[in-house]
């Protein structure tokens, strides 16, 4: 088994379906739609003839070509966010058959291998819906500001190279740095819940992704200069202490970032930070 096989045993079991799924079968797409913020949600079913190796994106594209529900009602193309379709941009994250993931890497053969199978698509539940499957993840990016997720360089003018780094440290940082801000860790987190009130964004739980980013930048020689500020943010309301250790984040992370290790590492750092702060007062 390769190192990049999914962690979730259910996902491995689903992959076996690829061998048996027949091209050209009909799959029902049950889609939770919503016309806009504050409007009620409703379900619509669409029939799609699925070719081999099709993913959710290509099926949504097919629906857009002629959007007619299974009941024969003319409808509108489904609205959703998408980008790279290679699972590196994080755009097309949605809830598929009840759990969160990117829809581009979601092969229909895995989930609905037989004629007449149903696949349900829902928007992420932890962010306000914009329309249909598109949600507003602004809060996620705001949380990166809370932990000052950047290296405070002097400026962009040439002033020599960066610090040397051991291959081990590089490998650790690289993995953390592959976080694409998709929000899977937040969607699956029981401690992170929908918050439309922007004034609470800076005191609600910050989520695994931002905690992990704080760790990433605290590891960098120059990034460290802001370590105290990051730890201060993480020690406050909505910080690392608000993690409930359900550890769903690490299970659903499509990049297999060791988020729970980051949470523990930041937990330790915050303790040291606070103790130091207490004695230096």
């Amino acid at each position: 088994m390769s190192t990049h096989t999914p962690v979730d045993p259910a996902a491995i079991a689903r992959m076996a379906n690829r061998k048996t799924a027949k091209a050209g079968r009909t799959v029902i797409f049950r889609i939770k739609r919503c016309d806009g913020p504050g409007k009620p949600s409703y379900w619509q079913d669409f029939k799609v003839q699925v070719p081999k190796n099709a993913n959710v994106i290509s099926c949504l594209q097919q629906i857009a070509l002629s959007p007619v529900t299974t009941g024969g009602q003319p409808s509108t193309p489904v609205v959703w966010e998408s980008g790279c379709l290679e699972e590196v941009c994080g755009s097309c994250t949605m809830v598929i058959n009840g759990s969160v993931r990117q829809s581009c890497s979601c092969l229909i053969d895995d989930y609905a291998p037989s004629e007449g199978d149903t696949l349900t698509l829902e928007p992420m539940s932890k962010f306000p819906v914009v329309r249909d499957l598109w949600v507003d993840r602004a809060r996620l990016f705001n949380n990166l500001k809370r932990v000052k997720a950047w290296v405070p360089i002097d400026g962009t003018y040439a002033s020599g190279s960066g610090p040397k780094e051991s291959p081990e440290d590089q490998e650790t940082r690289y993995v953390l740095s592959t976080c694409m801000s998709c929000g899977c860790c937040l969607e699956a987190c029981p401690q992170f819940n929908v918050e439309a009130d922007e004034s609470k964004w800076n005191t609600d739980f910050i989520g695994a992704h931002a905690i992990s980013q704080a760790r990433l930048f605290n590891m960098h020689e120059t990034g460290k200069r802001l370590a105290a500020e990051r730890l201060e943010a993480l020690s406050g309301a909505g910080g690392v202490s608000d993690c409930g250790n359900a550890q769903n984040c690490v299970k659903v992370c499509p990049k297999r970032i060791p988020l729970t290790e980051s949470i523990a590492a930041m937990g330790r750092a915050v303790v040291f930070h606070k103790v130091k702060q207490f004695f230096n007062r």
Binding site: I153, T156, S159, S161, Q170
Partner: peptide, 21 residues
């Protein structure tokens, strides 16, 4: 080369040799 240096300073995790280059 100046751009690589800059990106390095910004914290891009470029792959490293055993010595750290």
């Amino acid at each position: 080369p100046r751009i690589i240096d800059l990106l390095d300073r910004m914290g891009v995790p470029f792959n490293r040799t055993a010595e750290g280059n």
